[in-house]
Simulated assay, not measured.
Amino acid sequence: MAELRGVFWDVDGTLADTEMDGHRPAFNQAFEDLGLPLHWTPEHYADLLSVPGGMARVRFSARQQGVSLDDDLLLTLRGRKRERYLERCRSGHVRWRPGVLRLLRELDCAGVQQWIVTSSGRGSVSALLSGGGDGSWPFQGIVTADDVPEGKPSPAGYLHALQASGLSAEEGLALEDSAAGLRAARASGLACLLTPSPWDRDLPPLHGLAVAVLEHLGERERPAHQCWGPPCPQGLVTLEYLKFLLDPPA
């Protein structure tokens, strides 16, 4: 009988709506600051999201447009983008997804381990966490692109977090929003609950790989619509529902 002892959170698109309202405009501001001939529209950025990791997207986009970026310039760009992203987080442009703060508190009160596993860098995660809440977060650890050799869809981040947490994959559940994240979680052996990002075009055919798919985690005044999986009472993802997903009755 499986017992839920750990929840592993993705960041971008899962914890918060960071991509279109946070990372994209922060990169565009950094490009402008440094005089680079790059600008990402929402449509172009949606295409770039198939490339895991912000700086990997920069390299890919620059190659597409014939823009040369050396290592020193990339390092400067990374620092400037982090500054701009932090500004956006602190000014309220980046919003937590519905139900996230509620579920974080519930899991914390129940003593369930919570870990962040993301293909973003540690600076971006720190910017998000410092820009909201009271500064106290219930995460036992954070695994970022700086900690593993490969980002999602590689399972490296999740395997690293499982080892650090002392938990087996059967004792944990991942929360993701993307095809790359879903593949990474499943490759590590973790069951995965999806709250999809609307711009991930590769995700709908993969819904069956998840234990459930809901538009978000739900609030009492804003229940979540469900796309797949066992019915979620009142459209609210709770600790009891996560336990049920991990160990449904025979």
Rank of each mutant, 00 (worst) to 15 (best):
A110G: 08
I116D: 10
G111F: 10
Q226G: 10
Q64N: 10
H93S: 13
W199S: 15
C227M: 14
P25L: 08
P149H: 02
T144I: 05
V125K: 05
G54N: 06
Q226D: 09
H207D: 09
A187C: 10
Q29Y: 06
V237P: 05
A110H: 08
R80Y: 01
K81R: 11
D200S: 09
V125C: 10
P42N: 12
G151Y: 08
E219T: 13
E32P: 02
S126M: 09
E176K: 11
E150W: 07
P231A: 12
P42Q: 01
A250W: 14
D12Y: 01
S188P: 11
S50F: 11
L36G: 05
P155V: 04
L129R: 00
G166C: 09
L36M: 12
Y85I: 04
G66S: 03
A56N: 11
R80D: 01
L15Q: 03
A46G: 15
P138T: 04
K243P: 03
S197L: 08
C109Q: 15
C227S: 15
M1K: 07
R82Y: 09
P233H: 07
S154L: 03
D47E: 15
H160M: 15
G157S: 13
H44Q: 13
E19G: 11
V100F: 03
L34Q: 00
D147K: 00
G135A: 11
H207P: 01
Y85S: 09
P233I: 15
E43A: 15
R122Y: 04
H216C: 13
I116T: 10
L103R: 11
L214F: 07
V94K: 07
V58F: 06
N28P: 11
D17W: 03
V125F: 10
E221V: 08
G22I: 04
E150T: 11
A187D: 05
S136D: 14
R95T: 15
D12K: 02
R95M: 12
R222N: 03
S188M: 14
Y158C: 00
L77A: 02
E19M: 13
P223S: 14
L48M: 13
